[in-house]
Computed example of a mutant assay.
Amino acid sequence: MRTGAAAGHAGYYHTAGCFGSDQELLDLAVPFLMGGAAAGEPSVVVLDGRNAELVRAALPAGAAVTFLPGGAVYERPASAIRSYRGLLAGHLAAGASQIRIFGELTSVAQGVTWDWWARYESAINHAYDEFPLWSICAYDTRTTPPAALADVLRTHPRTMLPDGRCLPNAGFTDPRLYLGERRAPAPDPVQSGEPAADLVDPSLSAARRVIRAADRGHLAPVEVDDLVVAVSEAVANAQRHGVGPVRLRVWSGIDRLVVTVTDTGDGPQNPFAGLLPAGDGADGGLGLWIAHQSCNHVALYRHADGFTIRLTAGNPHH
Score class of each variant (00 low, 15 high):
A127E: 00
V73T: 09
D263L: 03
L25Q: 02
H317Y: 15
T173E: 15
C18G: 06
A6Y: 01
D215P: 09
G20C: 09
P146H: 14
G35H: 04
P316T: 11
A238M: 08
D163H: 06
A94K: 13
V250A: 10
L179C: 05
C166I: 00
G242H: 08
P185G: 00
L161D: 03
F102M: 02
L28K: 01
Y139G: 01
A299I: 04
D48T: 03
G244Q: 06
G285Y: 04
L68S: 01
G90P: 10
L257R: 13
L286M: 07
A186F: 14
G284C: 01
P195I: 09
V235H: 02
T159P: 02
A207D: 02
V55C: 07
Y301G: 03
T141R: 12
W116Q: 14
D280S: 14
A94G: 13
H218E: 15
P187T: 09
W117M: 02
V231D: 09
L153M: 08
A96M: 07
C137W: 01
V259C: 07
E53L: 15
N296A: 07
G314K: 08
R208P: 01
V45R: 00
R310A: 14
P202V: 06
S43V: 07
L177H: 15
A123S: 08
P202G: 06
P42H: 00
L59T: 02
G253R: 13
